[in-house]
Write a protein that binds this DNA or RNA. Structure first.
Length: 273
DNA sequence: CTCCAGGCTTTAG
DNA sequence: CTAAAGCATGGA
């Protein structure tokens, strides 16, 4: 069960190593990727990118393959901003992942004031401890735990998994979501969704923007972190220092393209492309 | 040793 | 209202 796609606008490295997911594992000639309770193997030869999975329709949606990214690159170029044009051309294979909403909530709570390798390892330990064991292509992996399973553990468990001071945030948010679910969030517009998400402990503006973007497909959100602040100062000549104002600057400039533009800028800067 | 990492909560002013 | 301290952890 595999399908392929034009590699020009689907590069596994650009997609997976751009900081939107933390559950990918480089292999010999591709990546083992986990999302929620599902897994796939993705590899490219530069012409075609091939996805192999028992759940092809899930990963077709996960990799956002119904969306035209040639058009997104073209719109990014149309802003005529040198730093953005350079970045967009260097990572044409970047796509926005449509991830499981609850998984993004916990993942990005863990991401605050943290670095990507450590975020990856903490998430792996939590999944290994609470997630269902699965098998794909002869490889064992663990599903991302349900909120109910997460809520059964206290902060101490998450501390021992390496979550640090974020341990309480995970425990409290899991309890809240286990109690009330998240289905009531799906119909909301981006502004209302962001407001609701910030009621979770450990979720501020930046983390909420990431959840809106990667977990709910809200492309008008523009997460502002330390790297975006740096880009704002160095490449856009910005003078604002308040992240809320920097967020407003970018979202009013890029509108519905905000999420894509943000991801391109972030990845190009971080990867030093 | 200090500084930093896809920041948030709490407290002080 | 805004500003700053405090927060776990591990790698550079």
């Amino acid at each position: 069960m595999k399908f392929d796609y034009n590699a020009e606008y689907f590069n596994p490295k650009d997609v997976l190593e751009s900081g939107q997911t933390f559950r990918y594992f480089p292999k010999k000639d591709g990546y083992f990727v986990i999302s929620a309770d599902k897994a796939c193997y993705v590899a490219t030869d530069g012409i075609k990118t091939v996805v192999e999975s028992d759940e092809p329709e899930y990963f077709y949606n996960y990799f956002d393959l119904a969306t035209d990214y040639a058009a997104r690159v073209k719109r990014a170029l149309s802003f005529q901003i040198p730093a953005l044009s350079l970045a967009a051309l260097k990572c044409k294979g970047l796509r926005l992942l449509k991830q499981n909403a609850e998984e993004t909530v916990y993942s990005f709570i863990l991401s605050q004031n943290n670095n990507i390798p450590r975020i990856k390892s903490v998430i792996s330990r939590i999944c290994r401890g609470l997630g269902e064991k699965k098998l794909f292509m002869g490889e064992e992996y663990y599903a991302f735990p349900s909120s109910r399973a997460l809520a059964e553990k206290n902060a101490e468990f998450y501390r021992s998994a390496g979550a640090g001071y974020r341990d309480k945030f995970i425990a409290e948010t899991a309890a809240k979501i286990a109690a009330e679910g998240i289905s009531h969030l799906y119909g909301l517009n981006a502004a209302d969704l962001k407001r609701q998400l910030t009621t979770y402990r450990g979720v501020g503006d930046k983390v909420a923007d990431c959840i809106c973007l990667f977990g709910f497909g809200k492309t008008e959100n523009f997460p502002v972190d330390v790297w975006i602040e740096k880009i704002y100062k160095e490449d856009f000549g910005g003078t604002l220092t308040d992240r809320k104002q920097i967020n407003r600057y970018f979202t009013s400039l890029f509108g519905e393209d905000s999420g894509y533009v943000q991801q391109v800028l972030f990845y190009a800067k971080r990867a030093n492309l």
